[in-house]
């Protein structure tokens, strides 16, 4: 499954008139893990996904899946499954018939429709018209459609939208399970805490450009404030003076927050000076803080 299911975005650019939606974007998405695609609203995530899927034509650059563009894939539904918008079935058609129509067009046996309905837990609502579906049910139908061809690559745009907490957990387990089977899973979201729980890797974009790519741990650790140390002492003034002299930056308060020094350096300095410590801990930055710092000032409508 390795290179066959790798997504490669290479120098991709999309201009709409004067607006550059995606600007020379390059990144790759590996099989066997969940890759989160993050960015503020209007960062170009949806446009990028649509270019990967051949729905939007790039101004320049290329996106490939297993070395081929989406249009070059002979049986695309059996290679790539995509969930792009929750409300993309005819309102007057039942969920079951929506899937069966897709089976016919994709050359798959009709029984696949029943199998994917079971997979997403929608069998009970299969014969109801799409207009009566809740947003969560629509997302499940979208995932069912994407899974029809049992594809090795999944591309999902904000699939957690409209799901309740139980639905979100279900989705997390499903996507992690699919990645565990060796599939490539690229999922965009603005729910950062959810992403931290779900993704192995992240690709962060802002203003249509790549900001950072890597594993969640690497990206979080790469940030300046990754190692901030929390200290509590009965002698804050003395310790502050000492730490500043050692090259630290100290925020004062009931607890001192020290940047630029490690936990160990702070502890050693206090011990040498005979200052008692009541608490010493490293504050681990989370994805949300890193995201906000990386994309700071780059959000907004363009």
């Amino acid at each position: 499954m390795a290179t066959e299911h790798r997504i490669v975005v290479d120098d991709l650019t999309k201009r709409y008139g004067d607006v550059v939606a995606v600007d020379q974007l390059s990144f790759s998405v590996e099989p066997g893990r969940v890759t989160g695609f993050l960015g503020p609203n209007g960062a170009g995530k949806t446009t990028t996904m649509r270019m990967v899927l051949g729905l939007v034509q790039p101004t320049s650059g290329r996106a490939t899946i297993g070395g081929r563009s989406y249009l070059e894939i002979d049986e695309p539904t059996q290679v790539v499954g995509a969930v792009l918008e929750a409300s993309s079935a005819h309102r007057g058609r039942t969920g079951h018939n929506h899937l069966r129509a897709a089976c016919i067009a994709a050359g798959l046996p009709m029984t696949r429709a029943d199998e994917v309905l079971d997979l997403v837990g929608l069998a009970a609502a299969a014969d109801r018209q799409f207009r009566g579906y809740s947003l969560g049910m629509r997302q499940r139908l979208g995932i069912a459609t994407a899974m029809l061809g049992d594809p090795g690559v999944l591309i999902l745009d904000e699939p957690a939208n409209g799901l309740d907490p139980e639905g979100i957990r279900w989705m997390r387990e499903l996507l992690r399970g699919l990645a565990h089977q060796g599939r490539t899973v690229l999922v965009s979201s603005h729910l950062l805490t959810e992403m931290q729980a779900l993704a192995d890797n992240v690709v962060i974009v802002a203003n249509g450009s790549l900001v950072r790519q890597g594993s969640v741990a690497e990206v979080v650790a790469s940030m300046s404030h990754a190692a901030r140390v929390e200290v509590r002492t009965p002698e804050p003034e003395r310790l502050t003076e000492l730490l500043v002299r050692a090259g630290g930056v100290v925020e004062t308060g009931p607890t001192l927050i020290v940047a630029g020094l490690t936990e160990q350096a702070v502890g050693d300095a206090a011990f040498t000076a005979g200052i008692p410590l009541h608490r010493l801990a490293t504050q681990q930055a989370d994805l949300e803080e890193v995201f906000l710092e990386l994309t700071h000032g780059k959000a907004g409508i363009r």
Binding site: L53, G54, L55, Y70, L71, I73, P76, T77, A82, L84, E85, S87, S88, A89, H90, R91, A102, A105, A106, T145
Partner: peptide
């Protein structure tokens, strides 16, 4: 109908040509 019912995306994903 593909555009009115927003099924165009799904249709062109299955048949990209």
């Amino acid at each position: 109908t593909e555009f009115a019912q927003r099924t165009a995306t799904s249709t062109f994903l299955i048949t990209p040509r």
